[in-house]
Design a protein around this nucleic acid. Structure first.
Lengths: 348, 348
DNA sequence: ATGAAAGCGCTAACAA
DNA sequence: TTGTTAGCGCTTTCAT
């Protein structure tokens, strides 16, 4: 029933306004000093025809799409929305837009999106997925467009990287627990394939050592960075090491899982067990009690990534020196951490 | 340091292979019966030059971008990821891709994305945002491309709509509580501007009436469909109506907020208060105890929307009759609902 | 089986 | 100030 009319073109507008397409183009772009009369005619024609310039044609001509590709691991992972949101905002105010690709933890899909976006001739690439094959990092360095890596540290950093001070962040978390009097603490780590997970494990160990805790007696269990892994880890950990009073988690999803596991094990948080996460994703505020955590500046990361790309595009002659930006993390004390319970309470 | 070479073009490939651009195009598209020799030459040139066809140029020529625009309300709202994910999957297997626009609950941003996507000449539009101005719905009907509305019911349905049986779903939830023996039940509704919220309120009222509960005595508080609104609603509700034993919530985010509010009010779930949500978003499984809810088939909605668009595009001559598809919802009993506590327990 | 040429809708020299 | 013209990279008749 609805007839879909083909969109009108710049030529339609030019004909109706009685001018050339070049004039229409100039008037619309605000270039030159057109006669008021001409402007009026063009504007009238544009309105009458409901004309909207085709960005496809414009992109072909200008060799610029004003689009950035953003590759993330998983759109359902609560870590990403804030990153995506601020990246999108920053891009939008600068006249760019973002196209998103979620790899769903599969390397071949990262390649798929890299190719798709390159074929679409995006002006720049932001890669915030940890699940990327080593060759892909190499490819990025020679990609036809500038790129920036976020929240991951490729072993060979040939592109600029924006990430958090993961080691310092988890140190903050660990020191918070130790400051609360906890001595029997444990760590639920993330998969060692995640660069952030290894950095955080190192930070945890360092903080423990500095506090004089014997590194060899500290339980470390590796989870999957998700709810399920955290829950399973907590059950095992609390069964094998019932005297643990504080758990430092690789990330918030793990911590939320640990909370569920602890509850199942009959532990009450924070009365007889303190739990601290890392990242400060939205769910951290939604669980009860709300999760104490160390926040990553996710919004800042997205904004910086976009601004970096725009800077590179605007300064094509500037030599390209890959740098690593490590943003500080921020302790946010909420409801899942408290003073270490008196020793007697458990040992009787 | 890195020189960014301009991408090679079909002309480069043609020259290197010693054939015409037409031949390259045909070989790559698998059209006609090229000599084996020609194919080999073209393939070799493509590899040597690392040639990737420009989708920009192709789109201009074919007047097809193989892209759908998907407009959602808020990428940080856990309702959307599953929808986006399945839509993306369905699109990808069909050779399309999805560009996303998140309106952040602002009507003018919906318009922005509608224009942006139209300018980009997407082949179809999926609108899954409730925050859309009335004119936008009208515009959709005459848009240059086919569209489908998901999870919202515009008052004048001029496009095909895919949604859930919200009324039936909340009825399931209410009946579940009543079946558990609850008689003092309440509802935390969503904003009346959301079509799903009014449908759910109606379903709740209907189920109560059918069970013989006096509609005039049933407390209904309106929240904002978010955590904060649910938390505030629970505090007020439990203060004003301390004898309530079961709360049916507009959606899961509200329910998670209600859980926090109930905890703050000293109520223990599900022992002396049952809470049930609606949607089955991921956080429902992450809170402890896990939230009982009624699931929307979000994945199915995304898949159906994409398939509908592809169908319309593939059958341009078929008359377009807007239809409304209402998917059934599914009760998922988890940990926040239980038998109504004995009356005496509260009144003493 | 392949090539020449036109054209998708736009912008940018260059002329006038 | 405005128009003419060429061309971005591709696909697709129409010839050969």
């Amino acid at each position: 029933m609805t007839e879909r009319a083909a969109p009108s073109t710049i030529r339609d507008v030019a004909n109706r306004a009685g001018v050339s397409t070049a004039t229409v183009s100039r008037v619309l772009a605000g270039i030159g000093h057109p006669k008021a009369e001409t402007v009026a005619a063009v504007v009238a024609a544009v309105e009458a025809l409901d004309y909207r310039p085709s960005s496809v044609a414009r992109s072909l001509r200008m060799k610029r799409t004003y689009t950035f590709g953003l590759i993330i691991t998983d759109i359902a992972n609560p870590f990403f929305p804030e990153l995506v949101k601020t990246a999108d905002d920053a891009a939008r105010v600068a006249g760019y837009s973002i196209v998103l690709g979620s790899t769903d933890y599969e390397e071949h899909r990262a390649v798929h999106y890299l190719e798709l976006m390159t074929d679409r001739r995006v002006d720049g690439l932001i890669v915030a997925s940890s699940q990327v094959a080593a060759e892909a990092w190499a490819w990025l360095a020679h990609a036809p467009v500038p790129s920036v890596v976020v929240n991951v540290e490729p072993t060979v950093a040939t592109t600029t990287v924006i990430t958090s001070d993961n080691e310092g962040g988890i140190r903050l978390a660990t020191e918070h627990l130790i400051g609360l009097g906890h001595r029997q603490i444990a760590h639920v780590a993330g998969p060692s394939s995640f660069t952030a997970a290894t950095a955080r494990l190192a930070g945890f160990r360092a903080a423990c050592a500095e506090a004089g805790l014997d590194p060899d007696t500290i339980p470390v269990i590796t989870g999957d960075g998700q709810f399920g892994g955290g829950e399973a880890a907590a059950r095992r950990l609390l069964a094998e090491h019932p005297d643990v009073t504080g758990i430092v988690c690789y990330n918030d999803m793990t911590a939320v899982g640990v909370l569920a596991g602890a509850r199942a094990a009959g532990r009450s948080v924070p009365a007889d067990l303190s739990v601290i996460g890392c990242d400060d994703i939205s769910v951290a505020s939604w669980v009860s009690p709300a999760l104490t955590t160390v926040a990553q500046q996710k919004g800042e990361m997205g904004r910086l990534a976009v601004e970096y790309l725009i800077h590179v595009l605007d300064n094509p002659d500037e030599p390209h020196v890959p740098e690593v930006v490590r943003l500080p993390m921020i302790l946010r004390v909420r409801g899942t951490t408290g003073p270490a319970p008196a020793t007697g309470a458990r040992s009787r």
